[in-house]
Design a protein around this nucleic acid. Structure first.
Lengths: 239, 239
DNA sequence: CGTCGCTTTGACACCTCTCAAGGGGGGTGG
DNA sequence: CCACCCCCCTTGAGAGGTGTCAAAGCGACG
């Protein structure tokens, strides 16, 4: 069930067979969530972490006027809340955006892994640091990129991340998000996201329609976004 | 030399005497950097991490037109680039904003710690997750808070973080930043930061002048910022 | 005591938001 | 099977928040 998770880990480091066995053994339960279901509430005490097997989920925070900011999107294979292992409770909510299947990983077994597998511990530590790197890139987008560039950047990031787990090709990828969801990632309104998508389409770069992203000119799209995949750490110089 | 670092760790967890000794023993060297010195370049291979002993530093990324976004500020006691231990190279630059003193921590000794001290390993893993939590809060600021609220929020965060290491009191704190630096944290121009600071001053909330923050009405400032310190994880429910 | 960088202020431009209205598609119930 | 309905998408017009440009003031340092 966790093949995509292993694909993601192996894109950055080697995972031995004993380590793989330990990961597989740590899965306690597989659960299904409906779309738009908040499966972790801020402040809630947690004793397990969640690997996303299928579907799209996100971390988000909001303000008193209801404005919501998604701080990261999660795709199949992501350890969506691995950080809860050391944090014990989260500062944000986690929500599904589409129907999702997930594997639950008790913290107790993670702790076991940290005491028996130092290398695997570093691999998982790395995974949470990768989430932080994505946060930093989004801070750059939110703070300094124009709405058009920021929109292009999100689709470039998802293209790379989905390709790692076999869910994207050169032509494009499926992405069951609404323009409202995208607006909440980008710090824009859905009205403006709509205008930016139209502009990207009229520029001949990409199209997003009915849950499908069609890449018409990836290179030009990356230029608009100033997309540099360094922050996704696919160049494994480690160990 | 690392007293502030220990204060920061102990604000969130217990550190035993053996662990403290291991930390002290891991410091290889103490160095001084001038202000505005980029001490880590993106992509550069790293074999040590840096604890900030004194001064202010930051992580930043920039775009081709020169626009710069600071993704996190670091104060005395912070392990500024602990994440480089698992990442091996960084996706961003690190720069001093004031003259700084720093302790260098070879990755080799950190690896040693991860193999001998599972609890301390989790403490340091937690520390990198805390940085990610700060990134998420900044994403919320950059994406959804107004310029005024965002400005207020930064000063609330620094007040809490500096107080943990004994560098802030109820009256205020020293902060040797320029309005340009603040603008680069907030995704604004320095001109607009200046206007927001004037507004906060005229509202009787706080004043920032010549490297000194004076808190005139902290409660009201926090209201404007919608500041909730949960994301700084000062409520230790763990272990 | 001059210089250079930072701060402060004003006027104006522009990017993105707000508000509003109509269109479309898929699911659900009759 | 059809019709309705509810989201979501799309587009336009106008408002407003923040950026740009410019100039003067201030302060620290050599």
């Amino acid at each position: 069930v966790i093949e995509k998770h292993l694909m993601k880990l192996r894109a950055r480091d080697e995972i031995g067979t004993e380590e793989e066995a330990a990961i597989r053994a740590a899965v306690a339960e597989v659960v299904d969530y409906a779309a738009d279901y908040t499966f972790i509430h801020r402040g809630q005490e947690l004793n397990h972490s969640t690997i996303l097997l299928d579907g799209l989920a996100c971390r988000y925070k909001d303000l008193s006027d209801g404005a919501r900011q998604i701080s990261e999107l999660h795709i199949a294979g992501d350890f969506a809340d691995l950080h809860s292992f050391t944090l014990k409770y989260l500062d944000h909510d986690m929500m599904t955006l589409t129907p999702c299947r997930a594997a639950l990983f008790p913290h107790e077994r993670l702790r076991d892994i940290t005491e028996r597998f130092p290398h695997l511990t570093r691999v998982y530590w790395f995974a949470t640091n990768l989430d932080a790197a994505i946060h930093r890139e989004w801070e750059l987008s939110l703070g300094r990129r124009s709405a058009l560039s920021r929109t292009a950047h999100l689709f470039c990031e998802l293209h790379v991340r989905l390709a790692i787990v076999g869910l994207a090709g050169d032509a494009g990828y499926d992405l069951a998000l609404t323009q409202i969801d995208i607006a909440e990632c980008l710090g824009l309104t859905s009205v403006h996201v709509n205008r930016m998508l139209r502009e990207l389409r009229e520029m001949g770069l990409m199209e997003f329609s009915r849950g499908r992203v069609t890449l018409m000119n990836l290179e030009a799209l990356r230029d608009v976004a100033e997309f540099d995949p360094t922050y996704l750490y696919l160049d494994p110089r480690r160990r």
